[in-house]
């Protein structure tokens, strides 16, 4: 039983199902929440689910994290593929920047209009 739990394919399945669940949670948040903060947080959750999926799918049982330290001088077969990790690190940084920027906009918008409900944003649209 425990052996099964420790198999790479099983773990990949768990990761896939888990990240899909998180993706759905985020998606529902994006599509149904009215508060701008919650919408952006939901978007962030959706992104995180993708990160999780990507990193998780590259995890292999018995391999180390791709960190060059403690006498290890180069990447080799004992480590998992380093590229996804590097990619996700970069993507997380970008994600944080985008989230910060969006929250700035939301705060500023709230200061000017006193409104944080997406349905009440009626500044734009066809003039009559």
């Amino acid at each position: 039983m425990l052996e099964t739990l420790n198999q790479t394919t099983f773990l990949h399945t768990v990761v896939a199902i888990g990240s899909f669940t998180i993706f759905t949670i985020g998606l529902v948040g994006v599509l149904s929440k009215k508060n701008l903060f919650k919408i952006f947080l939901s978007l962030s959750i959706v992104e995180s689910s993708l990160f999780l999926f990507f990193i998780g799918s590259h995890f292999e049982v018995g391999k180390a994290a791709p960190i060059v330290a403690d006498g290890i001088k180069l990447f080799d077969g004992h480590m998992v593929d380093p590229v996804p990790q590097a990619m996700i690190l970069t993507t997380i940084v970008i994600g944080v920047a985008v989230l910060a920027l969006s929250l700035t906009f939301v705060v500023n918008y709230y200061r000017l209009s006193g409104n944080i409900d997406i349905d009440k944003m009626d500044e734009l649209g066809e003039v009559q």
């Binding site: 998606l27 994006v30 599509l31 349905d119 944003m121 734009l124 649209g125």
Partner: peptide
């Protein structure tokens, strides 16, 4: 068709998905 171009961001997300 003009009505389509005034969709809110959330409805836009819905359309995309």
């Amino acid at each position: 068709t003009q009505k389509l171009y005034t969709l809110s961001a959330q409805n836009m997300g819905l359309v995309i998905f």
